[in-house]
Computed example of a mutant assay.
Amino acid sequence: MHGVKRVRYSREALAAQKERELAKLKEFQGLTAEVLDRKKRKDHGRESFDLTTRLLHVNPEFYTIWNYRRLILLDGVFPTSTPTQTNEILSDDLSLTTTLLKQHPKVYWIWNHRQWCLRQVPDGPTDTDPNGWRQSYWNKELFVVEKMLEVDPRNFHAWNYRRHVLDNMPVKRTELSELAYTKRKIEANFSNFSAWHQRSKVLTSLWSAGKLDKPKSIEEELDLVKNAMYTDPGDQSVWIYHRWLISLGDSKNVVDREILSIDELLDEQPDSKWCMESLVFYKRLLLRKYSESLTDEERWKLGSDCEGLLAKLQRVDPDRKQRYIDLSGHSV
């Protein structure tokens, strides 16, 4: 890399480094063998529990050890613990997963263990929360996952976990507040696919419950996504969300209007792959759904436009040339 001074190590230094790495590997292999042997013998004692902690710090993707750890807690630790002690143990395990997630934010098994811990929380009040330990835990979880999404707003593991938290909180967070949260995340970064996905779920729920006027909010969403399109026309997540919105309605006027808007964007961004793909998609949608209301000339014009766009896409996006050839050969 430019600007980085290359360090030359002596033969002795390299040999010493290799020796240290081999020693660490040997220690890890020995620890693994001992823990697996204890698992085989169904040793659910505290010493085995501590050994799983050591091993998971080295390899948090070792899902067998996570499973063994839960068995130790269920069979060896919880049965002899008071609710307060159980609460403290679970709090320690959540702290362990928080530490591990800072270095390994996309390891499924850490997130899974965190969910499992929350399911084990016993009933009991706290001095600051009359709703009990459970509500206190879930409030903290929402805070933790929001902090993680500040670090990486597109971490889909964190978004999935956020949905789990929101679904299970004893005192629910309002869906309108969640809708506002997704908008903040989207406006901070339009390419946040997970935030768009979360927004679609929240909107669907609000519409089903009659808490939002669906036609009006779809129009508002189309305005939001149009802003995103013009800001970053090359971002896939924006176009996928746009197609989802259009699929919810049954209005030729809306499709015509959106085609006109995308055509205007294509004039500014003549090589925009997603503009062209979307125009093909929506023009074929007109041919498929509203053919009877079109004149022969209009149908011919739409078909001709699609063929021209697909031919241009073969040049603009040569890696997917065969896909566009196949699409050109298929009927609408």
Rank of each mutant, 00 (worst) to 15 (best):
W138F: 15
L142T: 01
W159Y: 11
K140S: 13
K140N: 05
E141Q: 13
L142K: 05
H157Y: 14
W159F: 11
S136P: 00
W138Y: 15
E141G: 01
G132D: 02
W133A: 01
D152N: 14
K147A: 03
F143M: 07
R134K: 15
A158S: 13
F156M: 09
F156R: 06
W133N: 05
R134C: 04
P153D: 04
P153K: 06
V151M: 12
N155T: 13
V144I: 15
V151Q: 10
Q135I: 00
Y161D: 04
E141H: 03
F143Y: 13
R162G: 01
N155F: 08
H157G: 06
N160D: 14
E150K: 12
W133V: 00
D152R: 14
A158Q: 01
N131K: 09
V151F: 08
W138L: 11
N139R: 10
S136Q: 15
D152C: 09
F143E: 15
L142A: 09
K140T: 11
V144G: 01
M148L: 15
R162T: 07
D152H: 13
Y161G: 02
E146M: 08
P153Y: 01
K147M: 06
W159D: 03
E141S: 11
G132I: 00
M148T: 09
G132S: 05
F156A: 00
S136I: 09
G132Q: 08
L142E: 08
Y161R: 04
N160T: 15
A158R: 01
N160Y: 11
F143I: 12
L142I: 12
A158I: 02
W138H: 11
N131S: 14
W133K: 06
W159T: 12
F156H: 14
D152V: 10
Y137L: 00
V151C: 10
N139K: 10
A158E: 04
N155M: 06
V145S: 05
E150L: 10
N155H: 03
L149P: 04
K140A: 12
Y161C: 02
G132M: 01
V151T: 15
V145N: 03
H157S: 06
M148K: 02
Q135D: 13
Y161H: 14
V144S: 00
W138Q: 06
Q135C: 02
N131E: 09
G132R: 02
N160F: 06
F143V: 08
R134D: 12
D152L: 03
E141Y: 02
W133P: 00
L149S: 07
A158H: 08
V144H: 01
W159P: 06
Y161T: 09
Y137M: 08
L142C: 06
G132P: 02
V151W: 04
D152K: 09
W138R: 04
V144N: 05
R154Q: 09
R154H: 10
V145R: 09
W159G: 03
K140H: 12
W133Y: 15
V151I: 15
S136M: 12
N155I: 06
G132A: 08
V144L: 09
M148G: 03
N160E: 06
N160S: 15
F143Q: 12
V151E: 14
K140L: 13
N139C: 11
Y137V: 13
K140V: 04
H157M: 12
V151K: 10
Y137I: 10
Y161K: 07
N131Y: 14
E150I: 03
P153G: 13
E146S: 15
R162P: 00
N139D: 15
N155K: 07
